[in-house]
Design a protein around this nucleic acid. Structure first.
Lengths: 212, 212
DNA sequence: AATAATATCCCCGATTATGGGGATGGTATG
DNA sequence: CATACCATCCCCATAATCGGGGATATTATT
């Protein structure tokens, strides 16, 4: 079995050293490059052709998120694992959304880190339990949602139809009520949501997942 | 260590039997109830006080998603694992959003299933790799995004302002261009996005994350 | 030099949305 | 039974959006 070629990006020299030491001293891994920034990452990747990229998420200047985007754009199938010292919820989501293959904490045990790299290489999805939970939390509904605004069922129906792109008249037709009734519901909606235009209302509905 | 008390919901008697056989014949598990529907699930849960609920997602009548909602609403901390024969992407998301603790395929090996139940009981997040990948895919941007629609920078700026709730005139003021120019950009936006109203445009922008 | 893409501006007419009122009947809750 | 909440409908006036035109200048690409 050939070695897994790993490329490292981290502005912290100590991390870079300890990580590459970890990899080099274990069978099956080969460090094909360590870099303190992502300025020439495309060239480096093209030249050394790594199997896996480990990318620190918090680097000065062009940070890991930028590096991730650059690399994924050019090499969509190259697994990139994001590395960080602490798990910043927002950065987890951003990284995953931008195509990171997984997410590792520097505090993880060497075994776990090596295992995760193998998993990523063989197509797995390394995620710490903590991260997996956050992902679930993200999916999980706020449980506030609609309740918070005290929207009535009818108002929710109207809102849902508006979000789907229907006009006042079309909503009226869908619910088989008059245009004026729809207007009344929408007036109440605007009051409760604290908005004054259709666009604001639907954006709020979508962003806060008031509708399904 | 006390047994993990598991409650099963599945309309398929065979599954119910084989699953409870699996659990009863292994140390550390105790089946405290098997039911073919969720009609009285609150009473059953209240009475038998399970540690874990296994819920088939595809049941006639009140299905697993409904059962999940009912149980989570009443017992928010009770881990519920959804069970299904095949992995339906949409149901995965819905389940997770509604608070399911994890997601198991009936095709998984007995070992994995037992292990997953233990994990869920001890606070873990059992997810098959396939499911984890789907979750990542869900997070992952379409990779199409803005590029797909060939929106120009100016159009994106306009779209962003519209999403933030600004009117045509306010957009014009913000960008220091005329009202009519804004209209032109919006006409182009509507064409490119394939919509015909402001609401549709902002919903699309938010849902597909065309803007930040 | 011709073409395409972009950004800018204008007009007209038609449709839709918004704000501020008022009004009725039903249903629940104390 | 009084009060509150909900869903329903109506009017008037104003503001905002939409569709379909046309037009000019700049820049980049071929």
């Amino acid at each position: 079995m050939k070695d897994i070629k790993v490329m490292l990006f981290d502005d912290n020299a100590k991390i870079l050293d300890s990580m590459s030491l970890l990899l080099e001293t274990h069978e099956g891994f080969d460090v094909c490059g360590t870099f303190a920034n992502v300025l020439n990452c495309i060239e480096e990747v093209s030249h050394h052709n790594p199997d896996i990229v480990l990318m620190d998420i918090d680097m000065p200047g062009l940070n890991g998120l930028e590096g991730l985007k650059i690399i994924i754009k050019k090499f969509p199938d190259l697994p990139v694992l994001m590395l960080t010292s602490f798990d910043d919820e927002q950065k987890v989501y951003t990284s995953l959304r931008n195509g990171a293959r997984g997410y590792l904490l520097k505090s993880m045990s060497p075994d776990i880190i090596l295992q995760s790299i193998k998993e990523a290489y063989y197509g797995g999805v390394p995620m710490s339990d903590r991260v997996a939970k956050k992902v679930l939390d993200y999916f999980r509904k706020d449980s506030k949602g609609i309740e918070h605004y005290h929207l009535t069922e009818r108002e929710i129906e109207v809102l849902r139809l508006l979000v789907s792109g229907k006009s006042y008249q079309q909503v009226a037709d869908s619910l088989i009520i008059s245009y004026e009734t729809v207007r009344t519901h929408i007036k109440h909606l605007y009051n409760k949501l604290g908005v004054s235009t259709l666009a604001e209302a639907v954006v709020k509905a979508v962003k806060e997942e008031l509708i399904d």
